[in-house]
C-alpha cells in the first residue's frame, strides 16, 4: 500500500511539474553530471528530502501555521491532530538583538525528534523465576499517566538544530511552576550561560493541556518535522 501511495504521489508530482513554469525552465538546462532521484529540484534541495521521505514509513510532525494545527503523520495518514493556539519563532539573543533565522529554515525537513526532558526511567526488567518457584503474583503496570509524568514545559529537539518548544501544560494553565522543576530550570539557565544557546531556531507552540500531555507521552522518537505553506 505504501509503495503504491508513493508511486501515486510521484505521478501526481510529475504531472504537476509540467504545469510549474519555474521547474519547466530548469528542465531545459543540461542534465547534471551527478545522478539524481526520479525528479530533480536543483533550486531547492529541501524539497528533495521531502520527496525522498513522502509516502515512506517515517513518522512526520507537520505544522500547518495557516490551519493552526500540528499533525502526526505516518505513511500519508494523519494519525493525530493537535490544535495550536499560539505560534512564535525564536533565535538566540546576541548583543541585545536576535540572530537571524537560517535561510529557508521553514522549507526543509528536520529529522530525528528527541524529547527533552526525556521520559523517565529504564525498562522494567523481569528475570524469569526458576521452575516451580513462581509466586503467582501478577505484575500490573502503571497507567501511562503514572508511568510518564509530564513536565511543565518540554522541547522536541531535531538533529539539525530546530527545537519545537511546547507550552500549555496543566501547571502553566494554573500559573504554577512545580517546585520539583525549579532545580532543572536553574540548571538549564546555568547551562545556557556556560555553553550558549542549544538550538539554532525554536518554534514555540501552545497546545491544550490534554494534547500537551498526550504528545509528550506518545510522540515516536526519530519523528521528522516539516512546515506546510498552504497559502502564500
Amino acid at each position: 500500500m505504501t509503495s503504491l501511495r508513493f508511486r501515486l504521489l510521484m505521478t501526481g508530482l510529475a504531472l504537476g511539474l509540467g504545469a510549474a513554469p519555474g521547474v519547466a525552465a530548469e528542465a531545459e538546462q543540461p542534465a547534471p553530471a551527478v545522478a539524481r532521484g526520479p525528479f530533480a529540484f536543483p533550486a531547492n534541495p529541501a524539497l528533495k528530502d521531502w520527496l525522498a521521505k513522502a509516502g515512506t514509513d517515517s513518522f512526520f510532525l507537520v505544522l500547518d501555521p495557516v490551519g493552526g494545527k500540528l499533525q502526526l503523520v505516518l505513511g500519508g495518514v494523519i494519525i493525530r491532530t493537535f490544535p495550536v493556539a499560539d505560534l512564535k519563532v525564536a533565535t538566540p539573543r546576541r548583543w541585545g538583538g536576535a540572530t537571524p533565522l537560517p535561510e529557508a529554515w521553514h522549507e526543509r525537513v528536520w529529522t530525528g525528534a528527541r524529547i527533552d526532558p526525556p521520559h523517565p526511567g529504564a525498562r522494567t526488567e523481569i528475570v524469569g523465576p526458576e521452575v516451580g518457584t513462581a509466586s503467582g503474583e501478577v505484575l500490573i503496570p502503571p497507567t501511562p499517566e503514572e508511568a510518564i509524568p509530564v513536565p511543565s514545559l518540554y522541547r522536541v529537539r531535531f538533529a539539525e538544530g530546530l527545537a519545537l518548544e511546547v507550552t500549555g501544560g496543566q501547571a502553566e494553565q494554573k500559573g504554577e511552576l512545580p517546585p520539583n522543576e525549579l532545580p532543572s530550570g536553574l540548571r538549564e539557565k546555568w547551562r545556557l550561560l556556560r555553553e550558549g544557546a542549544p538550538d539554532l531556531v525554536r518554534v514555540r507552540i501552545r497546545l491544550e493541556p490534554e494534547h500537551y500531555a498526550e504528545m509528550y507521552r506518545s510522540l515516536p522518537p526519530g519523528t521528522d518535522f516539516v512546515i506546510l505553506h498552504a497559502v502564500d
Binding site: L17, V23, K88, V89, R93, E107, H229
Partner: peptide, 19 residues
C-alpha cells in the same frame, strides 16, 4: 536567552509549483 517573535512562513519562491 532567545528572542521570540511572530513567524513568517512565506515561501522563498524556489520550486513553488512542485512544492
Amino acid at each position: 536567552g532567545y528572542h521570540y517573535r511572530d513567524a513568517d512562513f512565506a515561501f522563498s519562491g524556489a520550486d513553488r509549483g512542485a512544492r
